[in-house]
Amino acid sequence: MPTEWKLFADLAERAGDKHVTVDAGAGDTVGAALTELVDDRPDLEGRVLTDDGELRSQINVLRNGTNVLVEEEGLETELEEGDELALFPPVSGG
């Protein structure tokens, strides 16, 4: 079953949409879903990934509202059916 990414701020602008469905589902990892997203929307790649293909340190990846980089197993976190993924750019206060 496909998984939907919610994109925020300039990431949505680069992708051309706030919601992008990718061909990753239960049993796949968050990293696999991220790869599908970047492959489908190449304008995101330079904003989300480093030249080495690593996730930029200031990008936040959430699964069902939980930051996978802090509270789960990072990009190795396994997806479950119905998961909602979100990608946030750096948040700056003001």
Rank of each mutant, 00 (worst) to 15 (best):
D52G: 01
D17H: 07
G94N: 09
R56T: 03
G25T: 05
T3K: 06
G65T: 10
P90W: 04
V48S: 03
E84F: 06
K6S: 09
G82R: 07
V68L: 14
E13F: 00
D40R: 11
G94M: 11
T77C: 05
A26C: 07
L7R: 09
A24W: 09
V38C: 08
L49Y: 01
L7H: 07
P2M: 13
P90T: 08
L44D: 12
D52A: 14
P42R: 07
T21I: 12
V20Q: 05
V22G: 05
G25E: 02
D43S: 14
D10A: 06
S92D: 06
R14P: 01
E78K: 15
R63H: 04
R63K: 15
T50G: 06
L85H: 12
L55F: 14
K6Y: 01
K6G: 05
L7D: 07
G16N: 06
T21F: 03
D39W: 02
S57V: 08
R41P: 04
G82E: 11
L11E: 00
V48T: 08
R56N: 06
D43T: 10
E54M: 10
A86R: 10
D83P: 14
E76I: 02
A12V: 05
G93I: 13
A26W: 02
M1F: 12
R56G: 01
V20K: 03
T50R: 11
A26N: 08
E71S: 09
E84P: 02
D23W: 01
V70D: 10
G16I: 06
D39P: 01
N67W: 00
L87A: 14
G53W: 09
P90V: 13
P2F: 11
H19K: 15
G16L: 12
T77P: 04
P89T: 08
G93A: 13
G31W: 00
V22A: 03
E4P: 00
L69G: 03
A33M: 04
Q58C: 01
G53P: 09
I59R: 00
A86D: 09
R63A: 09
R14W: 11
D83T: 15
F88V: 05
G94Q: 05
V38P: 11
R63W: 01
V61L: 09
T35R: 15
G94P: 10
V48H: 03
D28P: 03
T66N: 01
E80S: 14
N67S: 10
G27C: 13
F88C: 06
L62C: 05
L34N: 12
I59A: 00
V70M: 10
L75F: 04
V38Y: 00
P90Y: 03
P42S: 07
P42V: 09
R47T: 12
L75C: 02
E45S: 15
T29D: 04
E76R: 13
G53E: 08
T77Y: 01
V22E: 06
K6H: 12
T35A: 13
V38M: 05
G27V: 11
L55E: 08
D10R: 13
R41V: 05
D52M: 02
N64P: 02
E13G: 02
A24T: 02
T66I: 06
E73I: 03
G53I: 08
Q58S: 09
E80H: 06
R56Y: 02
L37S: 02
